[in-house]
């Protein structure tokens, strides 16, 4: 069942085209990731789907309801965690949760099962003011508040931005548990490594979707020859690889550099000879499968680096 449908949504702010002709569907119980950098249009899309902003053109439905006509029904059925912390800083943890439960005409007890896993981690601090919580705990509280009325769709706008790798992993573990309860989750993130945790992803840049697919299919369809290259002098290696005529793109990827090739006639052996000739030692070259980050960089056409 399609829980979210979006058809040809566009939205401008003055001269800025924040969203251009966006279309996609999200299925029940799916984690649908919107992956892209700041300013790509992720928040605008979320605000339209949560009925907080009108699109200039196009249609969208959430849980079967139209985002314009039926906005009241939608607001009862969704949970929304905006990118900016938007709970009441001067209320305690417990008070915040109570406010959200009351607003949605329910009680903490009634839906406690849904939030139990998450809430137990912050329950020891339930009398602390929300403003005095650490970043990781604020996220957990915000997630509880977004869930307390048992929404059928959850919108999480950059829940992991600026969050350390440990807290990021904790949050994703929670999302995967929620998915099992048939809650549809739309989540946006600038971290490419989180893409593989989604069922399907849309890569977004400059208000346009570059591609929509499962992470596995997306990386499988990467159509360039991709090698990982290492040597003992990595910054010199970056420059030397870029100078090679058959190297199309070359970017640092942690402990190795990833290169794509202009044509398939070059062999790793030839590349090794070229680099040895330039004084490199400890050279390791291996053809590799693409990651989502490789796909994003390829599709976004950012190949100016040559």
């Amino acid at each position: 069942m399609k829980v979210v449908t979006v058809q040809n949504i566009s939205r401008n702010f003055g001269k800025v085209e924040a969203l251009k002709d966006i279309s996609f569907d999200a299925n029940e119980g799916e984690i649908f990731g919107i992956i892209g950098p700041d300013g790509a249009g992720k928040t605008t899309l979320f605000r339209i789907l949560t009925t907080l902003l009108l699109a200039d053109s196009g249609k969208a439905t959430v849980d079967g309801f139209d985002v314009i006509k039926d906005y009241k029904q939608i607001r009862n059925r969704i949970g929304y965690m905006p990118g900016r912390f938007s709970l009441y800083q001067d209320l305690t943890v417990e008070e915040n949760l109570k406010v959200f439960a009351t607003v949605f005409n329910t009680t903490i007890e009634k839906n406690y099962d849904l939030i139990k896993d998450i809430y137990q981690q912050i329950e020891p601090f339930k009398t602390r003011r929300a403003g005095a919580l650490s970043g990781g705990m604020k996220q957990k509280l915000a997630l509880c508040c977004a869930l307390i009325h048992k929404p059928s769709v959850l919108f999480l706008d950059e829940p992991t931005t600026g969050v350390d790798p440990i807290s990021r992993k904790d949050l994703w573990d929670m999302l995967i548990r929620l998915k099992k309860q048939k809650i549809t989750i739309l989540v946006s993130t600038p971290y490419m490594d989180e893409a593989s945790l989604c069922d399907r992803i849309a890569l977004i840049q400059d208000g346009r979707f570059l591609k929509i697919d499962t992470p596995a299919a997306m990386t499988r369809e990467f159509d360039k020859i991709l090698w990982s290259v290492q040597s003992d002098t990595m910054s010199k290696l970056l420059a030397d690889l870029r100078r090679h005529k058959k190297v199309k793109t070359c970017f640092a990827f942690g402990e190795t550099h990833h290169i794509t090739l202009e044509d398939s006639t070059l062999t790793p052996g030839e590349m090794k000879n070229y680099l040895t000739g330039l004084g490199h030692t400890g050279i390791e070259i291996s053809p590799i499968a693409a990651s989502v980050e490789d796909c994003f960089m390829d599709l976004s056409g950012n190949q100016t680096e040559k």
Binding site: G162, P190, E305
Partner: peptide
């Protein structure tokens, strides 16, 4: 202090250069 948070992958790398 976290200079590359939320930046696209290509820009992040150019920043490191």
């Amino acid at each position: 202090d976290e200079p590359t948070s939320g930046v696209d992958p290509a820009t992040r790398r150019q920043f490191w250069e």
